[in-house]
Amino acid sequence: MRILVMSDTHGDATVIERVVQHEQDVDAVFHCGDSELSFGATEFRNMYKVRGNCDYDKQFADDVIAEIDGQTIYMTHGHLYNVKTTLLPLSYRSAEVSANIVLFGHSHLLGAELIDDTLFVNPGSLRLPRGRKEKSYAIIEFDGAKWQVTFKTDTHENISQTSFSIF
Rank of each mutant, 00 (worst) to 15 (best):
A66R: 13
F39S: 04
N46C: 04
E96F: 09
V83H: 01
S94P: 06
T72Q: 03
L37K: 01
V20C: 02
K58M: 08
V121R: 00
L126A: 07
E23L: 09
M75E: 05
R45C: 11
H10S: 06
R45D: 10
Q59P: 04
S94W: 02
D25H: 14
V83D: 03
P129E: 03
S98V: 09
R130W: 07
P123D: 14
N100H: 15
L110T: 01
A41R: 00
L87C: 12
D25L: 10
D27F: 04
N46R: 14
D25R: 15
K58T: 01
D27I: 03
P129Y: 13
G40P: 07
L110V: 03
G78A: 13
D57T: 04
E96I: 07
T85A: 08
V15Q: 01
V64H: 09
V19M: 01
L110S: 11
L88M: 11
A28F: 11
S7I: 06
L119R: 03
L109P: 00
A41L: 08
N46M: 09
L4M: 13
T72Y: 08
G70Q: 10
T14P: 01
R132K: 15
A99G: 10
L88R: 11
E67G: 08
P89S: 11
L4Y: 02
R18M: 14
G131Q: 06
Y92Q: 08
V97Q: 13
